[in-house]
């Protein structure tokens, strides 16, 4: 049963379309990853879900409640951890959590008890009574996650929860998210870190240009691609002519696909093979022309390969493509009420 349904969401800012028919269904108790490059529409989708933004079209349903009809009920069901951590620098972390608890109408005793629990759980005890202005990015993120969890929401929504974080904070956050999932909380997180989605998500959607282009369990998505990724070297440092010769040799081997010469890696060759048996054929073919195999590594397809397959470019390239196009000032204005 799905706890969250996003149905054909459309949203434009002026002439720029941020979402174009985004649909998503998040099963109850699932840790769901939303993967996409910057500018794909992740934040817009999550802001609509958090009732901060009205879509031009489409429906949002959380636990059977229409978020556009009954936003207050949905706000109560949901914890939302935004990307830009807005914090009151003058308050201490504990005071901020207390404020948050009061905004969710927790009874005072429950509130304080909950705060103690979360401070303990997220190792915030050393600094929670200091003013937020002194916190590092990681501390702020942990505090923000704690404030999203204070009222024990059924659905936790996180926008890029570990972007730019130190390793310790990231580990704490990942662990907390896994625990929460194990205890039945449904979690939706957006990320442009492949390894984050890979490490955490039970299910995921790849989102590009405002809609979902692939959806499923990460393992299943990778399996669907088929084949293994192979990196091959015939010498430690090869050169272009040699690499070209090897490529021509291997192109005719049955079951070898998509051979790419990777200049940056000393003219190694990246290719896709359909199973073990192809490797021995490949080695035989090389031996017949007196090439040695200096190194050969084999790996299952990664999420990056999934992304590449779905969009025709790597996630990194997609990020670079939009890097210069975004206007932070414009985006800040859009998020301002």
């Amino acid at each position: 049963m799905s706890l969250l349904e996003l149905d054909q969401l459309e949203k434009s800012y002026g002439t720029v379309s941020a979402l174009s028919g985004l649909s998503l269904s998040v099963p109850s108790g699932c840790l769901y990853g939303l993967l996409g490059p910057n500018g794909a529409g992740k934040t817009t989708a999550l802001r609509i879900l958090a009732t901060l933004l009205a879509p031009d079209q489409g429906r949002v349903v959380v636990a059977g409640v229409d978020a556009l009809q009954e936003p207050r009920t949905v706000r109560q069901l949901m914890g939302y951890v935004a990307q830009e951590v807005a914090i009151d620098k003058i308050l201490t972390g504990r005071e901020l959590l207390a404020l948050q608890g009061d905004l969710y109408h927790l009874p005072r005793q429950d509130r304080n008890h909950r705060i103690d629990q979360l401070v303990d759980r997220m190792s915030m005890g050393d600094w929670i009574d200091r003013r937020c202005g002194t916190y590092s990015g990681g501390m702020r993120r942990r505090l923000d996650l704690a404030s999203g969890l204070l009222h024990q929401p059924q659905l936790l929504v996180l926008d890029e929860p570990t972007v730019g974080l130190d390793i310790e904070s990231r580990a704490v956050i990942w662990e907390v998210l896994r625990d929460l999932r194990d205890q039945g909380t449904t979690i939706l997180l957006s990320s442009h870190y492949l390894e984050e989605v890979e490490a955490l998500a039970d299910r995921m959607a790849i989102i590009d240009a405002g809609h979902v282009i692939a959806e499923g369990a990460p393992e299943a998505l990778k399996r669907e691609l088929g084949g293994d990724r192979v990196t091959l070297r015939v010498r430690e440092f090869s050169d272009q002519p040699e690499a070209e010769r090897v490529r021509q040799l291997l192109e005719v081997v049955d079951g070898v696909r998509r051979i790419v010469i990777n200049r940056a890696q000393g003219y190694s060759l990246n290719l896709v093979v359909d199973g073990e048996h192809v490797l021995s054929a490949l080695k035989q073919r090389l031996a017949s022309e007196a090439f040695e195999v200096f190194s050969l590594s084999q790996s299952r397809p990664s999420l990056d390969d999934v992304y590449l397959q779905a969009t025709g470019r790597t996630l990194m390239d997609a990020e670079l493509a939009v890097a210069g196009q975004r206007d932070p000032k414009q985006e800040r204005r859009q998020s301002m009420r």
Binding site: L52, T73, A82, E84, Q100, L103, Y104, H105, R337
Partner: peptide, 11 residues
């Protein structure tokens, strides 16, 4: 953006 924090709460 602190206002947004208030607005996602079920006031």
């Amino acid at each position: 953006g602190f206002l947004n924090r208030l607005l996602v709460a079920p006031l």
